[in-house]
Design a protein around this nucleic acid. Sequence first.
DNA 1: CGTCGTAAGCTTACGTCGTAAGCAAGAGTG
DNA 2: CACTCTTGCTTACGACGTAAGCTTACGACG
Lengths: 218, 218
Amino acid sequence: MPTSRAPLNTRRVLQAALELADSGGTDKLTMRHLGRELGVEAMSLYRHVANKDAVLDGIIDLVVSEIDLPDSREDWKSAMRRRGETAHRVLTRHPWAPPLLMSRTNTGPAMLRYIDYTLGVLRGAGFSWRLADHAWNTMDSFVYGYTLRRLTFPVAQADYAETAAAHAHLLAGGGFPHMAELTRQVAEGRHPGDPDITFGLDLILDGLERLRDAETRP
Amino acid sequence: MPTSRAPLNTRRVLQAALELADSGGTDKLTMRHLGRELGVEAMSLYRHVANKDAVLDGIIDLVVSEIDLPDSREDWKSAMRRRGETAHRVLTRHPWAPPLLMSRTNTGPAMLRYIDYTLGVLRGAGFSWRLADHAWNTMDSFVYGYTLRRLTFPVAQADYAETAAAHAHLLAGGGFPHMAELTRQVAEGRHPGDPDITFGLDLILDGLERLRDAETRP
DNA sequence: CGTCGTAAGCTTACGTCGTAAGCAAGAGTG
DNA sequence: CACTCTTGCTTACGACGTAAGCTTACGACG
């Protein structure tokens, strides 16, 4: 008979669920599979976890807790820029996470803390409550949206130009002249395609700075 | 015995699927349910549709086709603003759509047409290929991200202040001082909360305009 | 030492899902 | 009439989440 194993607990279940999701996406994350991974039957998990939704909420908050909190001592703009970049990086490390993060209400402790720090940074930089609220909502809408689009994008960055070349004629014949031309530009290496996140991040941050200045010195 | 019905076809299947999703979200959209709606067994649908993924791709493209194409005769900025607003409105009409739209690769004809028109407007306004590509990607990341966040948001607009009031003490006790204060501001009606999409839209459009001007007159 | 409550895990079972495989019944067409 | 083709139906399989109840082991207490 097998040596008795250490008893399960909620933390270990969530940890295993996170690893399972990382290794094979949300599809692989089933209660039966998760049980097998922990050497336990599926139904035994329900001793430590209310149901599957609780597992999902749990691992999302684990992911969010990986994002660096913005440092309120730093210049607000670079703090916010880094906030966006690291969020993007973390979410890219866990490609299964963004769809979950965005399609279900998330109010885990890590998420609340993350938002709270952000508001602190913005308030410290002289933003009004109204503008600070707009600011982080705009930033996050963009960052999450950008990350999700990027993950969905069918082509890896490396093959971008190559794939573009292969598809150019298809688009041209189909009555999409501008896309065809853009694709050609990418294929010829005249424009890198695959815009990185700093473009949009800086665009938004510059805009926010101008609005804050207009607000404080009317 | 029932009078013989008109034979099915792909269009009718997709139309029924769209109605089903609109009436009860993605959960209600199962092959069996869809069949029942059309007076047919589930397996019969596979004569007109490759599999369920094809149904999902199909109804997403139907939704995208509802979005107004930007008019290239109009001023680029208001054309793009309206583009974002109508996209937001259409996606809000079909709340099940954004998660699907963003979590699967979509290259249906309506989507391609939509992007092609957009590129046309931007090019007509003097944007370089590089900047035009950045521009629409930034816009769409924001619009989709914003819409998805809004749909996920637990509180309807009307009750916003009321709900904020109910939660304020909870946040204050939990070590989230800035969120608590922001919530209080909303509760007291000093800040509307619930930012609408035009804030971010105008922020991005103004930024893009500046970049284009810097590009054309160096 | 025996008893017994409690916690942890197991077993079985139900209803649902997408869909593979093959069958049946009609509509043209020669 | 026989034929193919189209359309839809039937049955079945292997997932899934989870409700309900059962077993087993261990610690507290008499």
